[in-house]
Amino acid sequence: PEGPAAMMTAIFVFIKCELGHANDVAADIVDNVEYVSECYSTSGQYDLLAKFNLPRDMDIGTFVTKSVQTRPHVRDTFTVITFSPFTSSR
């Protein structure tokens, strides 16, 4: 890939929220956390799934611990680091 997307790393962060606060956390993340692309409510062990596009030279662990885990009403996170994207040729 070329262009600005090639300079970024996509990560997905599953987020567990304090009971009753998933919508508040989602709104806070999309309004106040840099590099967020999307945030979805989910079923199962975690309440939210957020996608972030980080600069390739950014430390992922530091970003998650300082920018996501410290948000109000966040109880736990699980981070998935991605490698090469596959896209449709349509």
Rank of each mutant, 00 (worst) to 15 (best):
P1H: 07
E2V: 09
G3I: 08
P4T: 03
M8R: 14
M8S: 09
T9K: 11
T9H: 03
I11E: 05
I11R: 04
F12C: 13
F12W: 05
V13F: 02
V13A: 00
F14S: 13
K16V: 06
C17R: 05
E18Y: 06
E18A: 11
E18Q: 03
L19D: 13
L19G: 10
G20E: 03
G20M: 09
G20V: 02
H21P: 00
H21Q: 10
H21K: 13
A22W: 03
A22T: 08
A22M: 06
N23T: 09
N23V: 00
D24C: 07
V25I: 04
V25A: 06
V25F: 02
A27E: 14
I29D: 00
I29A: 03
V30P: 01
N32R: 05
N32G: 03
N32Q: 03
V33W: 01
E34T: 10
Y35N: 06
Y35T: 01
V36K: 05
V36R: 04
S37M: 05
E38T: 04
E38Q: 11
E38A: 11
Y40T: 09
S41M: 08
T42F: 06
S43L: 10
S43N: 07
Y46G: 02
D47A: 08
L48F: 07
L49P: 04
L49D: 00
L49W: 07
A50F: 02
K51V: 04
K51R: 15
F52I: 13
F52E: 04
N53F: 10
L54G: 13
P55I: 01
R56M: 10
D57C: 02
M58S: 11
M58Q: 11
M58E: 11
D59S: 07
D59C: 08
I60E: 02
G61E: 11
G61W: 09
F63L: 07
V64H: 07
T65H: 07
K66N: 10
K66Q: 15
K66A: 10
S67K: 13
V68H: 06
V68A: 07
V68P: 02
Q69K: 11
Q69V: 00
Q69F: 08
T70Y: 06
R71Q: 15
R71H: 12
R71A: 08
P72N: 14
P72Y: 06
P72V: 13
H73P: 02
V74R: 04
V74K: 04
R75F: 08
R75D: 15
D76V: 10
D76G: 05
T77G: 06
T77N: 06
T77L: 05
F78I: 13
V80I: 12
V80N: 13
V80G: 10
F83I: 12
F83C: 12
S84L: 11
P85Y: 09
P85M: 13
F86M: 14
T87G: 15
S88L: 12
S88Q: 12
S88W: 07
R90T: 15
R90F: 14
